[in-house]
Computed example of a mutant assay.
Amino acid sequence: MGQIKVEKNAGGIEGLCVIEPAVHGDARGYFMETYNQRDMEAEGLTMNFVQDNQSCSVKGVLRGLHFQKEFPQGKLVRVIKGSVYDVAVDLRSGSRTFGKWFGIELTEENKKQFYIPEGFAHGFLVLSDMAEFCYKCTDFYHPGDEGGLAWNDPEIGIKWPKLLGEYKGNASAKGYQLEDGTKLNLSDKDQLWAGLKDTFHF
């Protein structure tokens, strides 16, 4: 018991949690528990995970901002190789922090995990040459249920680290690059999402 340290309501947004596992290391390497249901429940985190996912992305890839419309997923995310800047945006109806975002750098060195409850948009930017990204989900993937928001929507105002470029009124990656010259790399779909106001019509 007690193998994790949890920062609750990260960034002042209810439900977001930054989790730091205890890492036991010596000259041979290290050992840690990446998930322990009893420790999570002791911290009041009683979610039930049903699916594990893993992705690999090269430097400059930005995935997001994605959310599920009818079948929302809570996600426990971490990086096992490389470094990403991971972001959650509150989309919960009636939330006092609707539209607010919080970001954290997740790396293979810091071994931090980030829990994002149901009702958030999620995305990440790869800062290392390559990153392997793992996450547990509280619901299964449902084809056709995905929604999205423009990663650079000024209404949300995410400050992506090490990213240079000027907003031109859409989600296109054109004209954006990391400080070392690596071009921003988005899927065709992620360059078509609209902003918060146009998506939620307020």
Rank of each mutant, 00 (worst) to 15 (best):
M1A: 13
V6Q: 04
V6I: 14
V6L: 03
E7I: 00
E7D: 01
G11V: 05
I13D: 05
V18W: 00
I19K: 01
A22W: 05
V23H: 00
D26T: 01
A27Q: 14
M32S: 04
M32W: 03
E33T: 12
E43L: 00
G44D: 08
G44V: 02
F49G: 00
D52P: 04
Q54W: 12
S55T: 15
S57T: 10
G60A: 11
G60D: 05
R63N: 00
R63E: 01
L65S: 03
H66G: 11
H66Y: 14
Q68P: 00
E70Q: 14
P72D: 12
K75L: 07
V77Y: 02
I80T: 15
Y85I: 00
D86E: 00
V87E: 04
A88D: 03
A88C: 07
V89I: 15
D90A: 13
L91G: 11
S95E: 10
R96G: 07
T107S: 15
E109H: 13
N110P: 02
F114A: 03
Y115N: 01
I116S: 05
I116A: 12
E118V: 11
G119M: 08
G119R: 09
H122N: 13
S128M: 05
D129E: 15
M130N: 09
A131G: 07
A131D: 11
E132Y: 06
F133C: 09
C134E: 15
T138M: 13
Y141R: 05
D145K: 00
G148K: 11
G148E: 03
L149P: 09
L149S: 10
A150K: 12
P154I: 09
I156Y: 09
G157S: 10
W160S: 12
P161M: 04
K162T: 09
K162Q: 14
E166C: 10
Y167N: 05
Y167F: 15
S172N: 04
K174Q: 14
Y176V: 09
Y176P: 08
L178T: 08
L184N: 09
L184A: 10
L184Q: 11
L184H: 07
L186A: 11
S187W: 06
S187T: 14
Q191W: 01
G195V: 02
L196N: 03
H201Y: 07
